[in-house]
């Protein structure tokens, strides 16, 4: 059975600041739970084993999790633990909810394990020694990738909605504390960096100078690029004119369903290059 490791961190509620399960890590765990019947799931946290917010992850139904007792910069400890575990898939959220939140941890782990990394994963299907991953693109697009195992995936807000956490299984779940062989003494944020409360930066606005009447005239005078075409027609002719316009401007395709590469389970042929 292939092993799946999910790296979890403690999150922070955006309004109250209370510690809770991190949203992106919970989505990563939800993605892993979708493979619960074909793989063995290992939930791993690096930090304080007594943290109460970890129970919210256990409440999602995973039964137990492993906590590496460490503090400060935990990337080394996690990498060593994963090298021993040798999972087929490592899942993690895109970035933390507190601290520096640089989002570098998945890349450092992928580097240490020498496994390819796919960011912004939405779904995963295991097929033998490769996996088919669907990645989210800007503007709501999706693309499919076939990656040879072992792989590292990060999950962003486009990932699956995490299931609710139940209190009973959260209390009954088991937390296994593991001591780290060589704990790193490096702090999470180096001492020569200065930390201070965020200052509100002024947004650059395209200010149109002038009175309210001038601003109104300005917004109303945004003309079409090529000059307006005004058409008076009966509904059928109007519909044809709109459809022609959409085709000309490339906003609609005349034959979307005939494209074979859009079928999800077709033979995995290479498609157009990425980006």
């Amino acid at each position: 059975m292939p092993e799946i490791a999910v790296l979890l961190s403690v999150g922070r509620h955006p309004a109250s600041g209370r510690a809770r399960r991190a949203d992106l890590d919970a989505r990563a765990l939800e993605l892993a739970l979708g493979l619960a019947d074909v793989a063995r799931i290992h939930a791993i946290h690096a930090g304080d084993p007594g943290e109460p917010a970890l129970r919210e992850y256990l409440g999602m139904g995973i039964g137990s999790m492993t906590v590496l007792a460490s503090e400060g910069d935990v990337s080394g400890a996690l990498a060593d633990h994963l090298k021993q575990l040798r999972p087929a898939v490592v899942l993690t959220g895109g970035r933390a909810e507190w601290g520096e939140a640089s989002g570098m941890l998945p890349y450092l782990i992928a580097q240490a394990l020498d496994s390819p990394l796919i960011c912004d994963a939405v779904s995963i299907a295991l097929r033998g020694d490769a996996a088919r991953v669907v990645q989210a693109l800007p503007r709501g697009g999706r693309r499919a990738l076939r990656v040879a195992l072992p792989i590292t995936l990060t999950v962003e807000r486009s990932g699956p909605q995490p299931r609710m956490s139940a209190f009973g299984p959260g209390r009954r779940g088991l937390i296994r504390a593991v001591a780290v062989d060589s704990p790193s003494s490096a702090p999470a944020i180096p001492a020569d960096w200065l930390q201070r409360p965020a200052r509100v930066r002024p947004r650059r606005l395209q200010r149109v100078q002038g009175s309210a009447a001038e601003r109104l005239r300005n917004i109303q005078s945004v003309r079409a690029v090529s000059g307006t075409r005004l058409l008076e027609a009966d509904p059928v002719q109007a519909a044809r004119a709109i459809w022609q316009y959409l085709l000309e401007q490339g906003l609609a395709e005349a034959a979307p369903a005939a494209d074979p590469s859009s079928r999800t389970d077709a033979a995995d042929r290479p498609g157009a290059p990425g980006i």
């Binding site: 390819p116 709501g140 693309r143 499919a144 990656v147 040879a148 498609g271």
Partner: peptide, 17 residues
């Protein structure tokens, strides 16, 4: 990079964006 193969875009439900 032989480990990753880009299979191309996947059709999405554009009204859910």
């Amino acid at each position: 990079e032989p480990a990753i193969i880009d299979l191309g875009p996947v059709q999405v439900d554009r009204s859910a964006v």
